[in-house]
Design a binder for these strands. Structure first.
Lengths: 231, 231
DNA sequence: CGTCCTTTTGAACATTGTCAAACACTGTGG
DNA sequence: CCACAGTGTTTGACAATGTTCAAAAGGACG
């Protein structure tokens, strides 16, 4: 991979602290590929041969069982996915497909495991990343088990509004996929948007306006231990 | 803590590989406490001062939001809980209470973080443990999102039967808590048990007999990427 | 302009939760 | 040992939530 691409990877907390020589060695086996939209990158149950880094575009992590499918997460630049499988040398638990045209760096899992053993700073960063991933999934589970779908949507909108820093914004994802991520059907999501109108939400296509942030928050009751990604 | 108690902790994969001196140093700050049943050990949002190790008994991890409560996991000997919070020096995401009389070792999080930086083998073991925890929660999320409550119960019973190595067994947990863990109400669980009868499940109080394992499996469609804890 | 897919809407249905009551089980104190 | 309280479990009736199916409307794109 080129040096400029290497810089993008190096900027990640996961790779920022490791030794220079080790990082270069890791990049030696790494290659970057461009993918069109809607391409399957990996499929659950396959051996985790590569740690993936999304450099640009967006990737959907999803799972299937018994002809049902659910969206588990969206990965946006610059970040990695399926680190746990790579480190553990176990099969992927989730599948991944590009949502848009994407540039992905592929780091051989074997090299990751080797560097993990060789470079203490890298090992530390990996543990921090895994701890963070774990806490994110736990928060997601709490969201799913403690809230109704309407409450999940309300809190999702508040989170979006906060990360964008504005009371109005465009949805970054298809409503169909948002529904799947929130654990409901598209039909139910459509009705949920309607049901949030009296709580201060206006929907025009994919453009959302939170007309009454306090009112929506009063209904949604956001909680740092579910809705804050930083803690 | 005494040496014999130290041995129990040492037996855990998490502590088995670290240096002897480091392990002893870690145990120096550790103390063991006995708790009666139904005692709150930690509460979500508190600072993660201690890594907990269940030496005997059983501990329920649960979360609350807006006057609702859900059981997230049961921790049985010998294993640790809230490692991610300890390592990250972030508040607990879950609360914990004893289910039975329990013996718990409390390891100061500060010491854990110090040893994590000092002992490479320990750091490796921590990353492995975190990766494993992450994958467990992902499997749990797939269970929740891809299956109905009836399917979750059926698969739960198959998992129990498999880990006990017998087609009949006693439930290790109250039905009320099992319901909460599976993401349903006690009433719904009671009816779910009834609904599984035609699929080969007999319920007498807390004693479960799987009269038709193949039939139940045909209905439950167990999947290694959801139901196997080892992969 | 037509085609494909997403989104929305309506109606029927299924699943799950709520409330109330009865029953079972456990442990306590008389 | 029994009465009793407290809690967990089960059952029934009903309400709320969510899904399915069908169809129409809206958008994206060749």
């Amino acid at each position: 991979m080129s040096d400029s691409q290497g810089e993008e990877v190096r900027g990640l907390a996961l790779f920022a602290t490791m030794g220079d020589v080790n990082f270069k060695a890791l990049m030696r086996g790494t290659y970057v590929q461009n993918f069109p939209p809607r391409i399957d990158l990996i499929h659950e149950n396959e051996p985790a041969d590569f740690l993936h880094v999304v450099l640009s575009g967006a990737v959907d992590l999803f799972s299937q069982w018994n002809r049902r499918e659910t969206s588990m997460a969206t990965v946006r630049p610059v970040s990695t996915f399926i680190l746990a499988a790579s480190i553990s040398d176990l099969p992927y638990l989730m599948s991944a497909r590009t949502l848009e045209k994407s540039r992905i760096a592929l780091i051989p899992s074997q090299d990751v495991r080797r560097m993990f053993a060789a470079d203490t700073a890298f090992a530390t960063a990996i543990a921090a990343e895994l701890a963070n991933s774990y806490r994110t999934v736990v928060k997601n589970t709490k969201d799913l088990k403690l809230r109704t779908s309407l409450e999940r949507l309300a809190n999702y909108l508040l989170r979006q509004s906060r990360t964008r820093g504005a009371p109005d914004f465009d949805l970054t994802t298809e409503k169909k996929r948002l529904a799947s991520f929130l654990g409901m059907t598209p039909e139910n999501l459509s009705r949920a948007f309607r049901a949030l109108e009296p709580h201060g939400v206006k929907v025009e296509g994919s453009h959302i306006t939170i007309t009454d942030p306090q009112g929506l928050a009063r209904y949604a009751k956001p909680n740092p231990l579910i809705d804050d990604y930083s803690t």
